[in-house]
Every structure is written in structure tokens, then in C-alpha cells.
Design a protein around this nucleic acid. Sequence first.
DNA 1: TGTACATCAGTGAACGCGCGTTCACTGATGTAC
DNA 2: TGTACATCAGTGAACGCGCGTTCACTGATGTAC
Lengths: 202, 202
Amino acid sequence: MMRADARRNRERIVEVARNSFTEHGPGASLNQIAQRAGVGAGTLYRHFPTLQDLLVAVIEDDVAALCARGEALLGEPSSGEALHAWLRAVAVHATAMRGLVAREMAGGLGGGALAACHDQIRAAGSALLDRARRDGSAPPGADIGDLLTLANAIGWAGEQSPDDEHLIDRLLALITTATPPPPGPLAEAHPGHRQRPHPSEA
Amino acid sequence: MMRADARRNRERIVEVARNSFTEHGPGASLNQIAQRAGVGAGTLYRHFPTLQDLLVAVIEDDVAALCARGEALLGEPSSGEALHAWLRAVAVHATAMRGLVAREMAGGLGGGALAACHDQIRAAGSALLDRARRDGSAPPGADIGDLLTLANAIGWAGEQSPDDEHLIDRLLALITTATPPPPGPLAEAHPGHRQRPHPSEA
DNA sequence: TGTACATCAGTGAACGCGCGTTCACTGATGTAC
DNA sequence: TGTACATCAGTGAACGCGCGTTCACTGATGTAC
């Protein structure tokens, strides 16, 4: 069994690491993570011998959350809005994943746990995209891999301009598969969002 | 006047720096740049006292090239395709700019030369977007700043997957303002590209 | 044109720094009785 | 329940490394005559 203090430390390290990757991207310092988690550097290495191990631990939670969100959104009446909402969640919450993908793809290592995460996300997205396709609210040519890549890229852009809260929403609105967000308080805050059909379609 | 060897060295440093930023992103090593350029570290600092100076030097060329391209594309018959082609150029060629924007925005410094670059790019894009708007081949709600941000994000995604040559084209095709690329050999290579209207529009 | 010289660009070893990583040692925890 | 003990998680100083940056010195270049 795992000792109680070991489990506590492990959890705290993962939590701090998530924040650090969010804040500093892939350049986050492991020594600093250990310090902020209140453990010695050696403790971090006991739990996560390689950087990849730590990244995977951080990501696994995100992946599980995104998959659960996707499952829930399958119950949403509008299949187009469900897909849109899920892509938004990917853009907002996949920060650590971006760092990981960047590093690991660069290193060419891959790693089994990584591939598993990738497949799970892809499966969740495929379910939403297929449903939207059957409803005709997504073009049959759209690829789930490309949509995920684009959502990640938009999330990256959002990180570059943390002060622009609505940037991610505006960029998502530029994607062809995105249905316009439902009217509501959000629409008031974005003058850029069109609620009426485009003149060229009239 | 500038000594001949000084000018040669300066040019070589900028050229090597561009490659290094392309290859390693913002994490490129200045010592390594100096070494690859065949100069001592001090020489690099004589020409570019701060990292920002070096980045600006690299970017100025890119900015000029993109502005020239934009100018030329204003003569293109299809305003929608012209905008699309220009955004593609931004995505492909603005690597160093991405590194700069990421660093400088993070540092909050800004810098006059930087702002000037930003304004030039924005002006070139605005001209193309306005023309497309008048033709009805771009939605009036689209913002040139957002389109540039999205093009940059797509370029970032392209760098993460350097093996997927057509990724940038496929992602650009997902943008609402993008007109489909003209039929040709490229279309053959991208089964994902639709040439006929979307079923939901029929 | 040829030469002597002053200027200033170029050099690269050296510095301090924070990084990732290790490892001999300490001590908290869970277990056996 | 209480205690003695073995296990193994935690510690953090220390290491080597490459980074950005500096600076006393060297030498190539452009200029004046």
C-alpha cells in the first residue's frame, strides 16, 4: 500500500505542477515545483522519475474531465452547440497537454500513457462530431484531429493574451463548424458576435 | 559609416537567429546563435544589446515581406482568396514573431519598434479584409486582430507537427472567412477539402 | 598610390545563476506482536 | 490497546551543465597625409 504522507505529497505535487505548467508553459522549473509543493527535490523524483511521468499525471486528470464533459454534452439537445462547447473546454483546459504535446512530439518519444490519453480525447470528440454530422450541423469533411488541433491552437493564443478574456470565444466563433453561441449575457459583452444572418446570405 | 565586417557580421547574426528561433522557438540559445554565426558572444551583444533588439531585427524583415505580399495580393481578382492567401503567409512565415510576441507580451515591455511592426501588419491585413468585406466574401463582424491571432495560432500548431505539411492548409480551411482554395493539384492531396456546397445549405 | 595611425568592432575566457538530477542520510509511517 | 521495529518516503546540499552577460585585450578596417 502507499503510505499516507506519500499520497498526500504526490497529490500536492501534481496540483502545483498543473499550476506551474499553466503559468510558465513547458519551461516551468521542477525545483520550483518541488519547493512550492513543500517537498524536497528528491521527493519529486521518487514519484516522477522523468518529466514525462509528471506531465502524464497532470494530464490524466484533464483528460478524464474532458471525457466526462463530452459524455454529458451528448445529452445536450443541440449537437452543434454541444460540439462547440466541448471544443471550448478543450481550448480552455488543455494547457498542460499543450506543453506535453510540444515536448514529447519534439522528442519523438511518444510513450504508451500519452497515446492512451490522446485516443481517449479523440474518441470523446468523435462521438460529438459524428452526432453533429448526422444532424447536418457539422461538415462531413471536418476531421476530429484537425478540430482538436485547432482548439489547442486557440487555447495557446488565449494564453498569450491572458488579459483578453473573450479571445477564445471570438476565435472559436470563426470556425466553420461552430454554431453561434446561444443569446445571453455573454452576447452583450461581445459586440463582435453577430446574432443575425450574414448579409451575403440574404 | 558602418565598417564592412561589422555589417557582414550583423547580417549573418540576424540570419542565423531567424533559423534558430524557427528551430527552437523562444528558447533558442544566444551563445549558440553567436557560435553558429561564427562570431564571439561579445559581438552579438555589441550589435544587439538586448534580446528584444535581436528579435526586432529578425522580425522587421518578415514584416516587410508580409506587407509587400499584402500589397501584391490587393491586385488579386478574388478578394476572398487574396485574404486567405495572406493569412496563410502569416501562419507560415511569422515564426519569429510568435516567439517575440510571446516573450514581450509576457514581459509587458512592448517597445516602440514592436508596436510599429504590429501596426504595419495590421494595416496590411485591414486593407485585404476591407476589400473582402466590400465584396461580401468576409463577414463584417470579423476583426483583423482576431484573424491575425488565429493565423498565428495555426502557424504555431503547424510548428508542433512539422511532419504534417498540409496541416496549416486544412486548419485555415476551417475558418469561416476562408474561401475554398482554387481547384488544382493541391486539392487532390487533401481529400478533406470540400469543393461542393455543404449538404446543410441545400 | 602607399603608409602610419586611430578607431572601434571582434574575441572568448570567465562570472554568477538557476536548471535538472543525485545520493547519503533522516525520520515518519505502517506492521507485528 | 501499547510498543518495538523495519521499511521506505522525504530531505536538501551538492554536482555538472548551459545559459546570459561582461570586459580587458586584440586586431581589422577606414582615414589622413
